[in-house]
Amino acid sequence: MESDLNSWRWGHRLFLVLIGIIYLFLALPSLLVIPMSFGGSGALSFPPTSFSLDLYRQFFNSPVWTGSLLVSIRVAAATAVIATVIGSLAAYGLVRGRFPGQRLAGFILLSPIMLPAIVVGLGIYFYFSHLRLTGTALGLIMAHSVLTVPYVIVTVSSGLKQLDARVELAAEMMGASPLRIFTRVVMPQIRQSLIGAALFAFLISFDEVIIAWLISGNNAATLPVVMYSSLKVEVAPVIAAAATMLSAASILICAIAGLVQRKRAMDEL
């Protein structure tokens, strides 16, 4: 018995080590960029021969890079707000409502997740060309909102399903209007889901390159688009700094989302 348990333990440890190796293999190339970004301003090299912030200085002195960073932040923030508003209202309707065509409506709202991004991007590209919305930040915000609404719906729906519908019925019987029920009873209870959904939408928009590359053009190029374009021309060392900051921002947002979820779990105890 005991030897069985022991061999199981050893097998388990071996398994964990194996997972660690695979994980390292996948993550290492990305992680290498980080020390490289603190190397000199010459060519990209690993290991870096000296430590300096030259590449970051280059980044912040270039209007192309800083401009694209600002575009990215603005687009992602606007997308997060729009997608969270639309997505959470849609989720409320889908979870609580009863209307004909409800399942179909849910399916259509979630369809951007199911289609390949390049297909969604192409569709929006042709459509927006007609409307002259390509090459504008507004067009990109709209495209990213379409892309992120499904994620908001999924996140907020799972929050709503935890709620007891009778609490809303109780509020209604006390005389509360639908708007008051949504803002005073439902929203406070799904606050963490809403924050999580908004962060998620921000992150998806901030990282997204395919649709952004199709829609944004030169006038409204986001950070990932500029990185992608600059890679095609020549591998400028400054890209390491851009990549590091992009990763840092993503990890930070994920960490915040994680903390919010954890607080929710703590509140429920």
């Binding site: 009778r166 609490v167 019925l169 209604e172 019987m173 005389g175 509360a176 209870q189």
Partner: peptide
């Protein structure tokens, strides 16, 4: 008439108190 205009009180089996308040 919609429930909110009836002015009737109700007590539920599972209490249905607002947990965040």
């Amino acid at each position: 008439m919609p429930a909110r205009h009836r002015g009737i009180g109700m007590v539920f089996q599972n209490f249905a108190l607002m947990p965040h308040l």
